[in-house]
């Protein structure tokens, strides 16, 4: 009898101890929470990936951050969101302001651009606002007959990100190099010292009478890809953030599209 009582008591004691042990995390959790709620935790501030030199250039940083933080990778692609009609109002002038700073941009080009913008009937205009960047896409004609889309994208500070324009003028590789130099100078990206020329090895569908002059440069520190092309009467140039791996992929990525 005594032994049975003792056994029962031992069981009770062990169960009580076990309950205590199993519930032990509760007070420990509370203790650690108290520390969490009172301490000031550190937070990493800068984005990794770009060099300090690149981070010091607002435009380079803005381009890269948009790509990294917002995941907006529309480059020469889609229009994201239509904005109010009113933002279009001064858009051409901001573009003119930027282009006007480039020695490359002559009167002929400017006249052609103005003519094309004037030719674009208002319903065909579209624009997008990509947090700090705005893009325009105007359907217009360059010879009064053939339609094409005139595109450009500007940062909120008025830096041109990319542009696509049909032009009756002809450009050589030298012209395009000049264009790129000018572009870098105006945007301040020329402060980056690691711009390297890239041979564009992608294949374009070229017709019998077509011309294609492609020029590109890449900055490893800023992870920016600069391009200027003259393909079949269309002048395109711009800059976009690309990781090194993406750049390598680009060389072979044009497959069956």
């Amino acid at each position: 009898m005594k032994q049975k009582l003792f056994t029962a008591a031992a069981f009770l004691a062990v169960f009580a101890f076990l309950a205590l042990v199993l519930a032990a995390p509760l007070p420990l959790m509370e203790r650690s929470d108290e520390v969490l709620y009172t301490q000031v935790m550190p937070r990493q501030l800068a984005a990794d990936g770009q060099s300090a030199e690149a981070r010091s250039i607002d435009f380079a940083r803005q381009l890269y951050d948009r790509d990294q933080l917002l995941g907006i990778k529309n480059y020469a692609g889609s229009i994201l969101r239509l904005t109010d009609e009113e933002t279009l109002g001064d858009a051409p002038y901001r573009l003119y302001d930027f282009l006007g700073q480039m020695d490359f941009w002559g009167e002929e080009e400017q006249a052609e651009l103005e003519r094309q913008i004037a030719n674009a009937p208002p319903p065909w205009r579209s624009a997008s606002d990509n947090v700090g960047f705005s893009a325009w896409n105007l359907s217009t004609t360059w010879d009064g007959e053939h339609w094409f889309s005139l595109q450009w994208e500007l940062s909120a500070e008025g830096q041109l990100v990319r542009m696509r324009m049909r032009t009756p003028l002809e450009y050589t590789g030298q012209d395009l190099e000049h264009l790129m130099d000018e572009y870098l100078a105006v945007t301040g990206l020329d402060a980056l010292e690691d711009w390297q020329a890239r041979e564009v090895t992608v294949q374009l569908a070229v017709d019998e009478q077509s011309t294609a002059v492609l020029r590109a440069r890449y900055s490893t520190g800023a992870k920016l890809y600069l391009y200027a092309n003259y393909v079949d009467g269309t002048l395109v140039f711009g800059v976009c953030p690309l990781e090194k791996e993406e750049l390598d992929q680009l060389d072979v990525s044009l497959t069956e599209k």
Binding site: Y75, A76, R162, R164, A212, Y225, N229, G238, L254, K257
Partner: peptide, 8 residues
């Protein structure tokens, strides 16, 4: 990819 005008 690179489109027909050489843009990424």
């Amino acid at each position: 990819w690179i489109n027909e005008k050489g843009e990424p």
